[in-house]
Design a protein around this nucleic acid. Structure first.
Length: 831
DNA sequence: CGATTTTTGTTTTTT
DNA sequence: ACAAAAATCG
């Protein structure tokens, strides 16, 4: 999203010609970054410090001052969105031929590289790209074929193992297995590689690794690219993994030999992708290995007000391994951060809805209101509340366009047209729509293919009888589609395949198939759009190895794209528009945002919010175990990454930040009692405004939320376990549209999962014994907040026994869950 | 073989 | 709670 140069949303100055105006409006830090002398540069760019502006201005400045030609520039990003934005901003700044530059994602550029060097790479020129789903199904297939126990050699973990190996640059031959599992995984890895080679497919990690290896092993190729790309710029450098760093080093070469400049922009405090292999250490390594003369720090923030930055700075200061950076602003303190403690996730959502409405009434557009959460599961209750209140909202994340089942089915047929030996695609659609080819037939076919080392399509004649005939029928169908679509436009090809495959008929017959039909129609549109506006084949275009500065791109696109064919650099083969589109579909999963531009509250995970900014932010679920997440809070590294995530979340807000948490929350069908997140304690008290009393007990919070829920006539499912009186009435409320009440009311799970048999449907039944007991034992009840001299704040989960035997289970958050004897432990109720 | 029922597994995610 | 994958039945 656009980074503004003032919290008020002041737009960047218009670009004109002349480098002086290009640089106008930059602060001294930004200016130093943009005009850094040739050689390695590391820019430590804080949140909202104008990072994208610096990156694009740097390129423009290099071009304008004649230090670089377009063809000598490579700019690498992680997402297609970032690459597109860079391209767009650059074109707005300068009348420049961005086609001559290599601007794209790591994987997009690798794809471009490998298409140009398919032969050296040992790949068919029409190689296809496996996504994560395809990869998993391929690995599953291999594990089954090897007759390994899926309990021991878990498919998902094995794909993770393979990806990790590749990201460390390790091929099967480089690996020494240590144990049984390692040996199994290695065997699968080897078989997977063989299978990918046989089918002519590569996965994402393979794109990177194969490009790296070619650069490493082919001096003439390496020399060419090192000679060509004098300026390599990298965005979000803190997110690079080991292989990506090696890859960059390979393109840059030794600076003293090549004279190339590697310009890296990143923020170690916003490193939130260690879980998928990102190595923040690459920043420090880069500084050391390349002897970066001076790290430029962009600490002037143009986004948020003072209280928000104070909170962010104070929080992140508690992390140990940092390059060190402190954000500052000229914008004044602004409003304090508001903190709200809710009694339940439901009440939390309710509060957010009310506040969002209030903001809307005050004139804030809804798209300037964002609700952020740690995990996707949290969105549901918020969506419900917004929906019931009639407030427009939009959820980001989830299934993307090209990941939808019907789209993947259609793409599988298209891929088979392009490459009949793509077994993954074959298996996906061989019996979809159903055509009498069951699991047994497929197994026979796989056995036949395995014994001859051929593809499934090549082996159909080896299966005898009726099943064999069915299989041959399927192959004939695909062959017929290939024949019929020869010479057609991309649009016609897809339309034909959707009909001829039977997909259209299948979904027309389905009750719920309407949406899927619409998506298939949308696929045709996407293809059409790809051919026309995207300037077809951007990703698939192969550029001659010996092209000279910019010359190649000048006349090429218009003439050749119209012909819908492009010559391959080396082989002279034709790259079809279909192949180009399939590549596009693999590398760009497609937006999942419907109705863009509609004014709606923005719902997303904190990860998804990185790089975005909003006037009003609601940060939800600040509870121990949820944020920081329980799976990450037991190691220092894990906790520090969670803290960086919190830092990212805070710095999304321009004007108003609201943080909320809840005493109870439904998770996996059980009510959980959490205590507030330690991150709240790590924020400066002076920047916070508590809307609810500190240390408020469960009871008083409940009273309010009960009123809210009851007056709006909604269910009480998540509030069970509060007081006696609302208990019954709440059940009746539960018959309404929402909250799970319509499915037989609340069950025993409301008791922290301790009692499985407490499910009762009679809403007039007397209170369960557990509740009566709980209410009186030492003045404690389930959900009660307590204070312990050693463990600090906690929440009562379970009460057992009476009198001297009375025991209580308490969740103390970071100190874990403890069983305590009431007669021994010093517990003070918090009210 | 194909539909129905049971079991399972649920942090974050781009390419 | 809830969806997707696996197991089981006609």
């Amino acid at each position: 999203m656009t980074e503004h140069n003032a919290p008020s949303g002041l737009a960047a100055p218009h670009a004109t010609t002349g480098s002086s105006s290009l640089l106008a409006g930059l602060n001294p830090e930004q200016l130093a970054a943009v005009t850094a002398p040739p050689g390695p540069a590391l820019i430590l760019a804080g949140a909202g410090s104008g990072k994208t502006r610096v990156l694009t201005t740097r390129i423009a400045w290099l071009l304008q001052t004649g230090q670089a030609t377009p063809a000598s520039i490579m700019a690498v990003t992680f997402t297609n969105k970032a690459a597109k934005e860079m391209q767009a901003r650059l074109s707005a700044m300068l009348p420049v031929n961005t086609r001559a530059m290599w601007i794209g994602t790591f994987h997009g550029l690798c794809n471009r590289f490998l298409r140009a060097h398919a032969r050296i790479a040992g790949l068919p020129s029409a190689f296809q790209i496996l996504d994560t789903q395809d990869q998993l199904s391929a690995v599953k297939r291999i594990i089954k074929a090897l007759k390994y126990d899926e309990e021991k050699c878990v498919p998902k973990q094995t794909t993770w193992f393979i990806a990790n190996c590749k990201e460390e640059g390790r091929r099967p031959k480089d690996i020494q297995p240590r144990d049984e599992l390692g040996r199994m995984q290695l065997t699968v890895y080897q078989a997977y590689e063989d299978q990918c080679t046989r089918e002519g497919v590569v996965d994402f990690a393979e794109l990177m690794l194969r490009t790296y290896e070619i650069m490493r092993d082919h001096p003439e190729v390496r020399a060419h690219y090192q000679r060509r790309f004098k300026h390599i710029l990298v965005d979000e450098f803190q997110d690079t993994n080991r292989l990506q760093y090696l890859w960059l080093k390979m393109f840059a070469g030794r600076p003293e030999e090549t004279g190339n400049s590697l310009f890296a922009v990143g923020d170690d405090d916003q490193s939130i992708y260690a879980f998928r292999g990102a190595q923040v250490g690459n920043m420090a390594d880069f500084e050391r290995e390349f002897r970066v003369p001076k790290v430029v720090k962009l600490e002037q923030n143009y986004r948020s007000f003072g209280h928000i930055l104070d909170a962010a700075n104070t929080l992140i200061a508690q992390n140990s391994k940092r390059l060190g950076k402190n954000l500052r602003t000229d914008a004044g303190q602004g409003e304090p951060i508001r903190v709200y403690e809710a009694s339940s996730d439901y009440a939390e959502a309710q509060w957010i809805v009310e506040e969002a409405r209030l903001l809307h009434r005050e004139g804030h557009p809804l798209h300037e209101v964002a609700v952020l959460y740690r995990s996707n599961a949290q969105s549901r209750v918020i969506e419900s509340a917004l929906f019931n209140a009639g407030v427009a909202y939009k959820v980001y994340g989830g299934l993307r366009f090209f990941e939808r089942a019907e789209i993947k089915h259609a793409l599988a047929y298209l891929r088979l047209i392009e490459n009949p030996n793509d077994d993954t695609s074959f298996l996906r659609v061989v019996n979809f729509p159903a055509r009498g080819i069951g699991a047994r037939s497929v197994e026979l076919l796989q056995d036949a293919a395995r014994s001859t080392g051929r593809s499934l399509a090549q082996s159909v004649t080896a299966v005898p009888g009726k099943t064999g005939a069915n299989l041959q029928g399927f192959v004939a169908l695909v062959d017929a589609m290939r024949e019929c679509t020869r010479g057609l436009t991309l649009r016609q090809i897809i339309e034909h395949v959707v009909e001829a495959s039977g997909l259209a008929d299948f979904y027309r017959a389905e009750k719920e198939g309407q949406e899927r039909l619409e998506n298939l129609a949308e696929l045709v549109n996407a293809a059409e759009a790809f051919v026309t506006q995207e300037g077809f084949g951007k990703d698939a275009v192969a550029l001659p190895v010996d092209e000279s500065a910019g010359a190649i791109s000048e006349g090429l696109p218009a003439a050749v794209a119209l012909a819908n064919t492009l010559p391959d650099a080396e082989t002279g083969e034709i790259i079809s528009p279909l192949l180009a589109f399939l590549t596009h579909a693999s590398l760009e999963a497609g937006d999942n945002q419907a109705q863009a531009g509609q004014d709606a509250v923005q719902l997303m995970t904190i990860h998804a919010a990185k790089g975005l900014e909003f006037n009003n932010v609601f940060l939800t679920g600040l509870e121990e175990g949820l944020f920081p997440h329980e799976n990450s809070m037991n190691t220092t590294e894990g906790l520090e990454e969670e803290r960086r995530l919190m830092y990212v979340a805070i710095t999304r807000a321009r004007q108003r930040l609201n943080i909320c948490f809840s005493q109870t929350r439904m998770l996996h069908g059980q009510t959980r009692y959490n205590i507030k997140s330690r991150f709240l304690d790590e924020l400066p008290e002076a920047s916070l405004k508590w809307l609810t009393p500190r240390n408020q007990g469960f009871g008083s919070g409940f009273a309010k939320s009960y009123q809210d829920a009851w007056s709006s006539g909604r269910g009480m499912g998540s509030m069970v376990g509060a007081g006696a009186q609302p208990y019954r009435q709440g059940g009746q409320g539960g018959q309404g549209a929402y909250g799970g009440g319509s499915r037989g009311g609340y069950g025993g799970q409301a008791w922290g999962g301790a009692r499985k048999e407490d499910t009762f449907k009679d809403l007039t039944a007397p209170l369960p014994k557990a509740m009566a007991e709980a209410k009186n034992e030492g003045g404690l009840r389930v959900g009660q907040g307590v204070f312990h001299t050693k463990f600090g704040e906690g929440v009562v989960l379970t009460l057992e026994g009476t009198g001297a035997d009375a025991r209580v289970q308490v969740n103390f958050g970071r100190h874990g869950t403890k069983w305590l004897m009431l007669s021994v432990a010093k517990l003070t109720p918090i009210e």
